[in-house]
């Protein structure tokens, strides 16, 4: 596909068109299986389709070997679910990344999320060698350069169709140094990122503080920022996130709310307790979506319902974000119109 036919769109993905039309976007997450089982993708895609504008396909998340993001993304596309291909810097050097990007583009994928990648010590191959030839900022630059300059990272021209992606990057508003985070985000925007998906947000107050700094730098006007939402399944999950996950800010208040959700239910009735917890988790997430929508500069939400894809429907409906908009398709090319 050549940029001249995109009428101002960078890649023309569904996600890009939703955001450009000014809709509050919803992305979700689809974790591929630890096996060559395509039906897992099909089942998950069926749960997500229609309830999000695009779904991130994770790339060996938490450094555990899973079906490749592009492989799973091809199945998602067949199922009518638009994928956001996640790509980490941990497992591939710049050659492998660029060749995968060419392949993904040829398969019709139009969104990519550029990530550093969790350290391999967390995963199931802790003795592996990591790559980190590029970092995530440099990866954004490379993907944007392939699209806008029609050039490989080395500077050589791409003779033929260039891969065209709507380019995303991640931000962790709660990582340290806290006051430096907006500047790190600024580097990703400067590198050419079109959209940002944040780490899971539970501490809304602190996130609002982060957004204030983002706005002070004017970044919200240069990039679409999707706030990360994750429905809690149980008090145990909330405690684990509070105590064990680096870069996570989980207020005690939410841990307490989750604990109280099953109070009065017989301890032996595990099914009823789990249901009560999940109901509360969904309630909290919906409240949070409503709070996040009011923050200036938040263009959408990114729902990470890990191994709980059913929750996406509940959150999207509960927050009044259903049905999802159908933005106009890309009009036929007019003479004189070129892409940005």
């Amino acid at each position: 596909m050549s940029g001249e036919h995109l009428n101002g769109y960078k890649a023309g993905s569904h996600l890009e068109r939703v955001l450009r039309a000014g809709h509050f976007a919803v992305t979700a997450e689809l974790g591929p299986p630890q096996a060559a089982d395509g039906d897992v993708i099909r089942k998950k895609a069926a749960l997500l389709k229609g309830y999000c504008d695009a779904a991130n396909i994770t790339d060996n998340q938490t450094a555990i070997v899973r079906m490749s993001s592009i492989g799973a993304g091809a199945i998602a596309l067949q199922e009518g679910l638009e994928p956001v291909i996640q790509m980490t810097c941990r497992d591939r050097n710049r050659l492998a990344m660029q060749s995968d990007l060419l392949g993904a583009s040829a398969l019709g994928m139009r969104n990519v999320l550029c990530l550093t990648g969790d350290h391999q010590s967390f995963g199931n191959h802790p003795t592996a060698k990591n790559v980190h030839d590029l970092d995530s900022v440099q990866l954004v630059q490379m993907v944007v350069g392939m699209r806008d300059k029609k050039a490989f990272q080395c500077g050589e021209e791409i003779k033929g169709a260039e891969p065209r992606f709507f380019v995303g990057a991640a931000a962790n508003p709660f990582g340290d140094p806290f006051e430096w985070r907006p500047y790190r985000l600024g580097k990703k925007v400067e590198a050419g990122a079109d959209f940002i998906q944040t780490q899971l947000i539970y501490n809304i107050e602190r996130f609002a503080e982060f957004m204030e700094n983002v706005r002070r730098l004017g970044l919200h006007q240069r990039v679409y920022l999707l706030a990360g939402i994750g429905p809690l399944k149980s008090p145990g999950m909330a405690k684990y996130m509070r105590d064990q996950v680096p870069g996570m800010d989980m207020p005690n208040e939410l841990v307490d709310r989750m604990t109280q959700a099953a109070e009065g239910i017989d301890k032996e009735d595990k099914k009823a307790r789990a249901a009560a917890w999940r109901d509360e988790g969904v309630r909290i997430a919906i409240e949070q979506i409503n709070q996040l929508r009011k923050i200036e500069g938040v263009a959408g939400v990114h729902i990470m319902a890990i191994e709980w894809e059913e929750a996406v429907k509940l959150l999207v409906e509960g927050a009044g974000l259903y049905p999802r908009p159908e933005p106009a398709s890309i009009p036929e090319a007019d003479a004189g119109l070129t892409h940005e």
Partner: peptide, 25 residues
């Protein structure tokens, strides 16, 4: 731990690296 050139990854918290609380970021 990731040889990053453009600032800390999301795993930096309270001054330490995500891979070990013994390791300064």
């Amino acid at each position: 731990a990731k040889q990053l050139l453009n600032g800390p990854c999301g795993g930096s918290q309270n001054g330490v690296c995500e891979i070990s609380k013994e390791l300064p970021c």
